[in-house]
Nucleic acid binder design. Structure first.
Lengths: 194, 194, 194, 194
DNA sequence: CTGTAAACGAGACGGTACGTCATGTCTTTTT
DNA sequence: AAAAAGACATGACGTACCGTCTCGTTTACAG
């Protein structure tokens, strides 16, 4: 017996699962989040509506699962050794993600929903791609123990300005990641020296 | 003749207008943004559905008009003369607005919609309560001409961390406005001194 | 003002009403009662599903309204003056109705539903085309006051055998209406003479 | 080997068969024919859905098999020797069956379905509990050879009025079996004497 | 004081998505 | 081969809101 906990019955179709996630991804780009419906997803995936509802309860849940991997990948960074370079590279990736990537659009849509749908809010707080990636970068660039601020608050200082800039609809071209990275480092240092 | 361009017909009912805006405000608190519908608003306001559609095309438009005044008021600050005090007070008001005020909930809901509805995005960019209020505070606290950074980018530095903190669902209690205000001032000073 | 109790609002569309009743009639013939659905009716009528549900709650209700007039007409009889002729003619019409007419098929379907759906049962008991027509015929053929049996029971004696024959799926050709009419008259007479 | 044509494999489970028939019987009483579903039957019987479909194709088929024996039993009569007594007793049993017995409710439901489902119609014409029982009673009470009418038509005369009365939703209390039996006998006699 | 014309209430209408349900089939392991 | 388990495609269910429409009524100013 291969499966650990077999309880009888036809096994879940991996094909259907993939088709649904792909359909959700595609629909987000093609028609936007608002016009994306459970019905539309099921039809685009060539799958019954019931099958969609069997495994997910909201379009947000589907979209989250569909874009989580992409988000993680796009926000992952390679280290250069130089803290400033690393942080600047990360902020650049962050801006690219939020402003231009499909996965970023998915994230913004989900975060938007989360503002008035607690189910979605829980989804995001359970696995937060921005917070997670930022924590990793800061730890590796500056060292975990030398931080004068709780790690979580440091992420807010790093991410906050770019996040606000893009979410509030401002032009991402005007953002200068290197400058923001410098500010961040200087800020932490001056806090430390007090 | 009072009205500038009268073209005959019954004048718009101020009573209906007020009832609709109030209904929208109330419904946001009672059922949340997602469950708020044009039909629900019209019924709660005791007004025909057509009357709502005659003057507004989305629930976002109604909500925006209904909460704009409150937002402006809640984000307005009185000056003390001390820049640090002023900025800290403003950040405190900002957090209170975003995290606890009904008008702030409306703003978050609208900003959420704006992430996937360009009509709402335009609405917000046309009159941006956060940006406007922050610009005013920074100008008055630090002086317009001494800023080493474009005013708009300064607002992002000031607002960004708190904005991200709350929008991403983190606990607003952990925010320390005075600390953030200090950081902001120190940041601008060190930029200047280079 | 034309309408007796106008309470505002767009008036009901007579066109939609007629289209729905026609669609129901047609569908019964084309696909049969079981395969007839509310959705199918609305689509065939070129009408929204909500419009159907606004005025009727079951397909049985629609079918009843659609076929009631036809049933009444097909079971109406013209008098000849001779009781035997009249009753025989009526039974002939009854058999034709039950066994061959579309309206009769509708009636049989409804009566079938009534056996396990009390809502349909009420519908039929409120306006019973068989009972009504039979009562009229018996009254006019034999006189209301000379009956030795309650009128209702007389209708059962007259109608019963043919009704059972057809409903139980037997061949209507083997029914001899004139013979049944004779039996009925003889029966009443012999009851009277006791 | 016991079975005549054994072809290997697991034998049919008698337990499952009985559970299904019982479940059908129970469900008819509990929820009525309309709300009775194949799914419901299988769940109530604690049996896989496939097992139900393997042996029966409609709920009508199951219900028929489940109630046939009961019907036969309830409509069987013991002879007293007196034709009038025998026929009256039979009619009484018939009314009790149609109006009050669960098996009778099953029969009415099936006959209802038969009006718009030819598969069910065939089922009933293949084994007709009413016709069969009536034929037996008439033969034994009046003698097979002295009948002036084909036996089948005689059953219609005997059963028809009660059948119509109950199927059309009238109150069974108002039926007087003895009276109807008298009518039936008198009718046949007067036909004979012509 | 009488038109005229837009605002308003009421509510019907065609659409479309919702989430659920039962259908009958299938795929898997177990008996 | 039969059976339990349960996933699957299909398609109707009845409901909700959408935005539009068509009525009769109301309310202002203009002539």
């Amino acid at each position: 017996m291969d499966k650990a906990h077999y309880h009888g019955g036809r096994p879940r179709s991996e094909q259907a699962r993939a088709a649904i996630l792909n359909a959700a991804d595609d629909l987000l780009v093609e028609v936007g989040y608002a016009a994306m419906t459970m019905k539309g997803i099921s039809e685009k995936a060539g799958v019954s509506r019931q099958t969609v509802y069997r495994w997910w309860s909201h379009k947000a849940e589907i979209l989250f699962e569909a874009s989580a991997a992409d988000a993680e990948e796009e926000l992952a960074t390679s280290l250069t050794g130089d803290p400033l370079d690393d942080l600047a590279a990360y902020l650049e990736a962050l801006v690219r993600f939020l402003a231009h990537s499909p996965a970023g659009a998915a994230y913004r849509a989900l975060l938007g929903e989360a503002q008035h749908d607690s189910a979605v809010a829980e989804l995001l707080s359970a696995k937060d791609p921005l917070g997670d990636s930022a924590r990793v970068v800061i730890e590796r660039a500056l060292g975990k123990d030398t931080l004068p601020v709780p790690l979580d608050q440091a992420t807010a200082l790093l991410i906050g300005p770019s996040f606000f800039w893009i979410l509030s609809g401002r032009d991402p071209v005007q953002l200068v990641p290197r400058q923001l990275a410098e500010d961040f480092i200087r800020d932490l240092q001056s806090r430390q020296s007090r």
